[in-house]
Lab assay of single mutants.
Amino acid sequence: MQIFVKTLTGKTITSEVEPSDTIENVKAKIQDKEGIPPDQQRLIFAGKQLEDGRTLSDYNIQKESTLHLVLR
């Protein structure tokens, strides 16, 4: 499924993921596309910071959901 990751600069990254993918996994995909190390990434969805060990389905993230990427 496709999800969108919006950066603070307003850029939107499209990523191909599975509901069973972990947040860590998603951060790795963002690193592949943007070159941002996962340890600098914080992903936010519905006002919550997403934890690395959890999966997209844990957070009820569905296709075409938009996550927000904040850098630390």
Rank of each mutant, 00 (worst) to 15 (best):
E51H: 08
L43P: 00
Q62V: 13
Q40T: 09
Q49G: 06
D58Y: 15
V17M: 05
F45T: 00
D52V: 05
K11M: 09
K27G: 01
P37T: 06
M1N: 04
L56C: 01
I44D: 03
T9S: 13
V26N: 00
D39G: 11
T14C: 09
Q40M: 12
P19L: 10
P37V: 05
P37A: 09
V70C: 08
Q49V: 15
T55M: 10
T55I: 06
T66K: 04
Y59W: 01
Q31Y: 15
V17I: 05
H68Y: 15
V26Y: 01
R72K: 13
F45E: 00
I23G: 01
N60R: 07
D39E: 13
H68A: 06
S65D: 14
N60C: 06
G10N: 05
T55A: 06
D32V: 12
K6P: 01
T66M: 10
Q31I: 06
V5W: 03
Q62E: 10
Q2L: 14
P38W: 14
E16I: 14
I3Q: 00
F45M: 04
K6F: 07
G35I: 02
E34Y: 14
V26F: 05
E18S: 14
L67V: 08
I36E: 02
I44N: 05
T14S: 10
R54C: 10
E18K: 14
I13E: 02
G35V: 03
A46H: 13
R72N: 11
K48N: 09
L69K: 00
S65W: 04
P37L: 07
G47F: 05
K29C: 04
N25E: 12
T66W: 08
V17N: 03
E18Q: 13
L67F: 04
E64D: 14
L56M: 05
S20T: 12
S57G: 10
Q62C: 05
I44V: 10
D39T: 10
K29H: 07
I30Q: 01
L43V: 03
V17Q: 05
K27V: 04
D58C: 04
D32S: 12
Q31L: 11
D52G: 06
S20Y: 11
T9F: 13
P37C: 06
I23N: 01
P37R: 09
F4T: 06
K6V: 14
K11C: 09
G47C: 07
F4C: 04
G53N: 12
I61D: 01
E18H: 14
V26G: 00
K33E: 09
G47Y: 05
Q62G: 13
I61K: 02
E34T: 15
P38Y: 13
K33N: 06
N25W: 10
P38H: 12
F4G: 02
V70T: 08
R42C: 15
Q62I: 12
L50V: 03
